[in-house]
Nucleic acid binder design. Structure first.
Lengths: 214, 214
DNA sequence: GTTAGCATGTAAGGAGTTACATGATTTT
DNA sequence: AAAATCATGTAACTCCTTACATGCTAAC
């Protein structure tokens, strides 16, 4: 398997292609628009990833539209549009069902969250809670380590600590809101499974997180 | 050179050892207390780094104290305390003088900031401003990409965007405050160079950033 | 007609992690 | 005397980046 199981890119690509077929160049722009605040992918990782997904039969080339075919007669076509195969849709579902550390660590959480629309309510909740515990552990660790520190710190170090703590605390509060919304939503409307025939058969109980507090 | 130039760990290790000699295990705990909100290092990267710094003559083993020597008679000593060499101090200064992308990218900014106490005022300012532009570019890129997006996004994606934008905007505001403080501080007391004889001879004009606004 | 941006790809390598292996020291 | 945690180290591997190489296509 050329693409390892922990691969964030794989999920990002499959998730994006599930929405609509795309070629590599545009796919990258999409991903960097979607996740640009958290991470950015380069072509050097994207194209090899597409290739290995193709080899594994998870994606396939979409035949060019008539308009594109005209230029295609010259020889090699300049755009290669990929779409998910049935296997790819299965694989995507599999990835979206995972709710371990691979879903809530820094590098992966954003990507998993970005495709929450296609994720089961139960899994969403586990991921959100997992991420929250992860961050709380981090707060705990740094706080106790800091408490054990004898020497007084310089003001730059203090400022860095303060800013770091504040950022993480903010994310925890954000997660708390999301979790509350998830739970109330899940209680109000029990999950309903719709057979759409496209391999992603679960419709979330509501349109997603409606922000309850500001 | 076993440790590449872009190595964040090298700076983190040299910076920590400049404060006080340490052995690997404790060094890691220190670093993870100092930077735990941003990143964490594992032993698998720390020990090889120490080894290569040792090979390069940037650090050296500190002879054990009499108390430690007692147990050392049994054979191999269980703690290896490292301290900076003269070359190591030079190298640290060199690293602290760099103010390119390698200082203000996500992975490295925190580490550089953590040792701002030992960094020249001018370099501090360039790093803070570089980071700010970096984040502003990111905001710009995501915002325009989002503006070009035709389809309406689901609420999870929107929420992710909102949270991401807010976090980055917060960091920009934080940087603005720090930059303002740096500038006023630098204006008030022109930099004074103190010969301390330990290789780090520059004392910042004040104790660092005194938070001016909340 | 030439610059800028679109589009695809590869080779080499960097910066780390995980998992393992081992033994010393302290606590209970 | 068992368990925890302190302490050091290595091999294999992952995931991604940088730098390069190439050609197409639209705009000015």
């Amino acid at each position: 398997m050329a693409v390892g199981k922990g691969n964030v890119l794989e999920l990002a690509v499959l998730g994006s292609l599930h929405e609509t077929p795309l070629h590599g160049y545009e796919l990258r722009k999409r991903l960097n628009a979607l996740l640009g605040m958290f991470r950015a992918f380069s072509y050097g990782s994207l194209y090899p990833c597409l290739r290995s997904l193709l080899n594994d039969g998870l994606i396939m080339e979409e035949p060019p539209t008539p308009a594109e075919s005209v230029t295609a007669l010259t020889g090699r076509r300049s755009k290669i549009v990929y779409k998910l195969t049935a296997e790819g849709k299965e694989r995507l579902q599999e990835l979206l069902t995972q709710s371990g550390p691979s879903a809530w660590e820094d590098e992966s959480f954003g990507v998993h969250f970005a495709f929450f629309r296609h994720t089961e309510a139960e899994v969403r909740l586990r991921i959100l809670e997992g991420r929250r515990s992860r961050l709380e552990e981090r707060l705990e660790g740094v706080r106790t380590a800091l408490a054990r520190t004898r020497e007084r710190l310089d003001s730059y170090t203090l400022e860095l600590q303060r800013h770091g703590l504040e950022s993480v605390e903010r994310e925890v509060r954000w997660l708390n809101e999301l979790i509350a919304t998830e739970r109330s939503g899940a209680r109000a409307v029990p999950e309903e499974i719709i057979e759409t025939g496209d391999g992603i058969g679960i419709r979330p109980p509501d349109e997603g997180p409606q922000r309850t507090a500001e």
